[in-house]
């Protein structure tokens, strides 16, 4: 995985201790969020995301990938 920016102290600590920062439901709230999640699933090519427990905390590395993909799908 390549990093395209300097990580915050919080992110470094979370990564080092493998502490999760959010669940899918927190990143993708509501009906609109559910559709954004589907777009991220397609963008990342990760159908397994649909079957994850939406309330379970995400691995920080995965969360980072998801947030990057979310940024991309939210662009025009």
């Amino acid at each position: 995985m390549s990093l395209d920016r300097v990580l915050s102290v919080d992110e470094v600590v979370c990564l080092a201790l493998r502490i999760s920062m959010a669940s899918l439901n927190q990143i993708f709230p509501g009906n609109l969020g559910r559709l954004k999640l589907l777009r991220v699933v397609l963008k990342l090519g990760m159908p397994e995301l649909k079957h994850m427990n939406p309330n379970q905390s995400l691995d920080p590395m995965l969360e980072r990938r998801i947030r990057q993909a979310l940024n991309e799908v939210e662009q025009g």
């Binding site: 559709l35 589907l38 777009r39 699933v41 397609l42 090519g45 159908p47 649909k50």
Partner: peptide, 14 residues
């Protein structure tokens, strides 16, 4: 064959 066809259908409905 990607396991994402249903997600694709949902997005076409959207």
């Amino acid at each position: 064959h990607t396991g994402m066809r249903m997600a694709g259908e949902h997005l076409l409905i959207d």
